[in-house]
Every structure is written in structure tokens, then in C-alpha cells.
Design a protein around this nucleic acid. Sequence first.
DNA 1: GCGTAAGCGAGACGGTACGTCTTGTCTTCTG
DNA 2: CAGAAGACAAGACGTACCGTCTCGCTTACGC
Lengths: 201, 201, 201, 201
Amino acid sequence: MVQRTPNPQRRSARSHAAILKAAYELCQQQGYARLTIEGIAARAGVGKQTIYRWWPSKGAVLLDVFVDQILARLDAADTGSPLDDLRRRVHTTAEVLADTTIGPHIASLLVDAQADPALAKELHERLVAPARAQHRELIRTAQDRGELRADIDVDLIADTLFAPLWFRLLVTKAELSPDFADSIVDTVMSGTAPAQARPRR
Amino acid sequence: MVQRTPNPQRRSARSHAAILKAAYELCQQQGYARLTIEGIAARAGVGKQTIYRWWPSKGAVLLDVFVDQILARLDAADTGSPLDDLRRRVHTTAEVLADTTIGPHIASLLVDAQADPALAKELHERLVAPARAQHRELIRTAQDRGELRADIDVDLIADTLFAPLWFRLLVTKAELSPDFADSIVDTVMSGTAPAQARPRR
Amino acid sequence: MVQRTPNPQRRSARSHAAILKAAYELCQQQGYARLTIEGIAARAGVGKQTIYRWWPSKGAVLLDVFVDQILARLDAADTGSPLDDLRRRVHTTAEVLADTTIGPHIASLLVDAQADPALAKELHERLVAPARAQHRELIRTAQDRGELRADIDVDLIADTLFAPLWFRLLVTKAELSPDFADSIVDTVMSGTAPAQARPRR
Amino acid sequence: MVQRTPNPQRRSARSHAAILKAAYELCQQQGYARLTIEGIAARAGVGKQTIYRWWPSKGAVLLDVFVDQILARLDAADTGSPLDDLRRRVHTTAEVLADTTIGPHIASLLVDAQADPALAKELHERLVAPARAQHRELIRTAQDRGELRADIDVDLIADTLFAPLWFRLLVTKAELSPDFADSIVDTVMSGTAPAQARPRR
DNA sequence: GCGTAAGCGAGACGGTACGTCTTGTCTTCTG
DNA sequence: CAGAAGACAAGACGTACCGTCTCGCTTACGC
């Protein structure tokens, strides 16, 4: 897992792409747990060292595989209403996590990260933190506009909105339906709406 | 992982206990990820086969190690107020997950279970389902007594209350403090209290 | 190359035999240099660890493969005349070294041993020393009987008789014919015969 | 191992020298077996390709390192007596082979050559054949002058004189002392001297 | 005296084999 | 005769070098 920090300028785009492609395909075929660096190297037609040269672990490769496509799918349209944007965001997050070509693998990455601080750090920096930053921004805007109670901690609202999605994915494995996403938002909103504007569905 | 279903009557209590003890100690020392069946067998002074005979996987052993002590610590005192019981329950769950001799290992078990359906099933049946059953019972009682809105799905309330704890443990690794537990309960309660009894702290 | 000194009693005769057989066959097919522990394990249907458990190196396996059959072929008939026995011995040694299923591999073993003291030691103890002991015995007997000059060092005579065979095998790669064996013996004998019985053929 | 036959005129004398120097030093430090082309290139501050451009193998580099200094040290003074020259030649050969900065490496080269015909050829042409040519010349002159029996094959005498040195270096690893060199010559001479002039020490 | 072709240091590349590790099964010996 | 001890087949691990292949750079011919 040592990195001699090779020169990124000379990196072979061909190999890079082949590795990500092979990793993605094998992950879909066999699942994250059965994936091996040997297997990726073999399918990509690449030396193992080429993988070790550029990634510190299997998880890091998979992070590269998934992070862009996930962030792209999460990108919320700006509707002008931060509350609507937030609801939309919960929906798309639920969709992505429910997608069987993504959700289980992200869950596995999360698992791997429990035992691999470097992977945990990268996962956080590239996936968790950016997503959360957007959530906090939306929440803060809503609070500023008086659409959400301002006396509740931003992080707490974010956790309450998104945690149930991960909880179902990882713990109860219950369905991550759009209805569920809606229910969460409704429930949380009704507790966090300003007193004068509490929705009463 | 094959089980020849040996006669449980002839099981050696001595070995059984030694295995659980060794597994617990090694788990504390090295962490779940570095734990091996070989290591457990060696420390327990037991043949590997004796472990494979009675447990299908490393995770199953660890489940045996942790499940009883966790459920014992979660057992809520019945205060007569289901809402208070529920709040207490969130608190004790947060405490258990925050306990560094338990939380990380449960997290690891959960991770392992993502790739091992048998382990997932057992984890669910012995830990997740019992705890959730109690939660649902408390919620339903509170709804019956009119202390919680009855038009919100029991599971949804349960998810919203407990998911943030797991989310912080697994994803954001933020602190699982009693205050956080309180905040969750407050927030969720304010959204799920009946209209006429909404708390307004 | 570490040996945990496993219990030889529990050694699998099946695997042991399969490994030696595979090593022999691959050695004949590809030659010693292209031989690989991986290859032997694969052909023998054996785990690599099983080879590493019982042999410290590739050369050690090959030594086991060849040592018995070589010593068997060298075993000289006792004709009653130590000089004749000695001559016969030079002949059989030349034959064995000239045998393309043995000579090149022994040469390679010798080469490997130059860089591997453990292998060198074993090669010496199991092959070189036993053969030399027999040579010295024959020479000493001949000296006692007055058939060889007694004022010449036993080792020197042994070296002079057998060294040219190895020299041709390793250095000049010239033919190791029976005639050559005879010529060596004749030449050396004519210098080492007692004055009164010098052959003059 | 392919050579695009580069232009020797443009060869960098600097690199050439650095490579030979690095190879020599590393060979002394680590021994021939642990020597690598990568290591030589690194120590010489040279690209690997520059080595592969001018030498087909590690052995070829080492041959260049040793061949000149060996031949220089073997160069016999012409005393007028071919027999004395021959004896002197056996002495210097023993000295060179006994030199721990040369002998073991030459032995290793010989070993490598067993599996590398190109190296074997070059080793023969540049080291073995020239030395042998001189030996044969001396022997033939001695025979012409009647100082050695003319009915014994030149090659046979050469083998008998020099083979024991290599034998001790490669096989028995016994001492290559001047006394040993003398003993060989004495013994062989006493068998190959003409009948009328046989020495009788 | 200028451009171009080569050699050069550097090092990424696809590979092979290494020796170690762990898994889950099978075998043997022992209390 | 149950179980500890541990050998076994399998195969992934991460490392070391292999020999080939670009890269820019610099050197020195030949036009």
C-alpha cells in the first residue's frame, strides 16, 4: 500500500479507463465483496502494479468508479424554493441508494471504510462532505427565508432527513421508495416548520 | 460454511465459552477486521473445526459475543410513559453505539452482513428485529394513548428516531452524545405530536 | 523460506510424491531454470504452501528428486580390484553426468547452490560427500594394497580423477564419452602407480 | 533481449563506465545472485534501456566487468621453459579463482551460462577459449621439446591440469592454495612426462 | 551552423513469480 | 470417540524485477 507518488503526467489514460471499467463490470457481476485487485487487473489487461501504483486499495478504485456518477445524479435542479429542492434531493438520494447497481456497492464501500481510515477519509471528502455541504446550504437558505425553524441545528435537520435512507439501505433493508422519501420529508418538515406556517396535511 | 448439524447436546461448554471469550478479547485488541478464525481458535486453545462446527462465519461468532450484552443494555425501564420510555431508549441506543468496545464492532458486523445474507438474516432476527419490535410497541402504545399522532406510520417514526444514530456511527462518525439523542427526539416529537399537545420547548 | 518445522509424521505421502513427480516432469520439459514453485504446485495439484512447508527452495525439491536415482546409478559393483572399481566409478559418473535427463539439472543445482548456502550444504551432504567418501575408500584400499602410490594425497587423486568430468559438463561442454573416462583414468594412473608397476600401455 | 544494433560511435562513455562500475560494486556488496539490472541502472544513474541497449543480459555486463582483469592476471611470463610456464599458469589460475572478489562471481557467471546459450557462447569465446588456447600452446610446445609425452591428447592434459581448480571452486569448495596447484602439476607431470625423463620426487 | 536523428535518464507499462496469509476441509493423534 | 492440532488445496495478497515502451532532453552528425 506504499505510494512512491509516480508522475501523474505519464499516467496511461488507456489503462486508467480500462481499470475503472473492469472494476465497474466485475462489481456488478460479482459484487464488491468478491472483487479482487487480481481480478480487476486481469480483466483490464493491466499489471497489478499499475493498480497499486495509482490506488491504495480496492475501495479507492471503486470510489473513483462511483463518485462521479453519483454526484451527477444527485445534482438538484434549483427550483427557487429551497424546501422543494431539499425534498427533491431526498428523492434523488433515495433513488440512487435504491439503484441496485449503486446502492449495495456504496454500502460496501462504507463498510470497508470502517476498517480503512484512508478510504474513510477519501469517501468523506469526495462523497459525503460535498453532498452534505449542499444539504446544509439548502437548509440554511430555507431557514433564512423563514421556511424552516431557525432554532434547530442545521446538521440535525440534515441527519434527520437523510439518515433514514442509509438506515434502510444498511440496517433494515426496507424499501427506499419515493413515498418513503416523501414521508420522511413531510414528517421532518412538520416538526421543523416555523410555528406560523406549520403544514397540517 | 457447511453445517453438518452436529448434536448440540454433546457440545463442549468449555470450548464454547473459550471461543466467545477469545473472540471478544481479540476483537477488542485488534478490531473486527483483523480478527481471524485461526486467531480465535489459537487463543481459545480450540481446533478450528470446533468453531466451524458451530458457527458459519466469523460474524456469527461475534454476533453471539455481542447480542446478549447489547440487548441487556437496551432494556428500557418501563416508566409508565411510553414517550419517556422511547426517549430513554434512544438515549441507551446512542450510549451503546458510542461505546467503543461495542459500537465499532457492531458497525463491522453490519458491514460484513452486507455481503453475507446468512449473517444479515441472523443479525436481523437476533438484534435488529427484537429492538425494533420494542420500539414499535412503544410507539403504538403512545399513539393509542394519544401522545403521538396516529396518522404517521409506526416504522417511519421508528426510522426517524433511530436512523440518525446509525448514520453518525457509520457515515459521518460525528459524536453520539446524549444531547444529540435528545435533539433527535425533540425534533421528531415536535413533528409527530398530536396537534393539541405539540411541545414547544 | 521460513520453516516452522511441521510434524513430519502427518506429512501427506500423496502430496509429497505428487510434488516430486511434477518437479521431475517439469524439469525435463522446461529445464531447471524455467521451473517454478508455482508451476510445480499447479501440476501437482497442491497448494504452494505445502511445498514451502517441506522444502526451503526449488533446489531442495530437485535435490530430493535426483539424489536417490543418482546414488543408485553410481553404486559400483565390488570386483575385488579397487583399481577396477575406481575405473568403473569414473565411467558411471561420466555416464550419469552425460545423461541429458540428469547432467544439466545437476549442473543447475550446483549453480543455484553457489548463491544458496543452505542448498550448497545439503547438496554436499547428500550427494558430494557420500560419493567422495566411496572414492576415498577405494583409493585408500588401492594404496594399502600397493596398487597406487601411497605418497599422494587421497583427495588429490580423487580430484584429479573426477574433476575433468565436471569441468567438461560445466565449462567446456565437451563430450563425456567412455573413452574420455578411460583416458583420464589411464593418465592419472600412470602418474600415481607405484614405480615398480607403472602401466605403460 | 532484442538488440536494435545501435550506433556504437554515439555510445556514451560516461554511462558505459558508470554501468560497469556500479555492476562491479554491487556484485561485491550483494553477490551476483542478488544483482539486478534495475539496481545497476539506479546506482549508475542510468536508464534501464541504456543497459539493455548494449548488453543482452546481466551476465554479459558482468562478463565485461571481469574478463579483462582476469586475463591480465593470468598472463604468464614467458620463462623459456614451457613446463615452468604451465606450472606458473596453474598457480595464477588458482589465485584468481581463489580471489573472493572474482572467483565466486565467475562461478556464478558459469552457472548463469548453463541456462543462457548466448552468455555461454560469449563466456567461452572471451574467457575460456583464449585461456585454453594458451594452455594448449604451452602443452604442445612442451611436447615438441620432448618435455611431455606426445602420445597424450593435448586437451586431456589441459583438462587434467585445470579441472581440479574449477572442481574445488564449484563442487567441493576446498581450498585453492598454491600447494594444491603444485600438487596437481606434480601428479599430472609424473604421469605425462616422457619415460626417459620421469621426475621421481 | 542548423535541423534532425540518435542516445540518454527516467520511469510507466504488461507480466511472472515470489513468499506469505487466510479460508474452510480433511486427517491424524491423543486424552 | 470427541476434539486439539494442524496439514491440506486454493487462491489473493502486496512486492520485486523483468524486458518493452514512451517521454522530453541533450548531444553531435550531415546537409
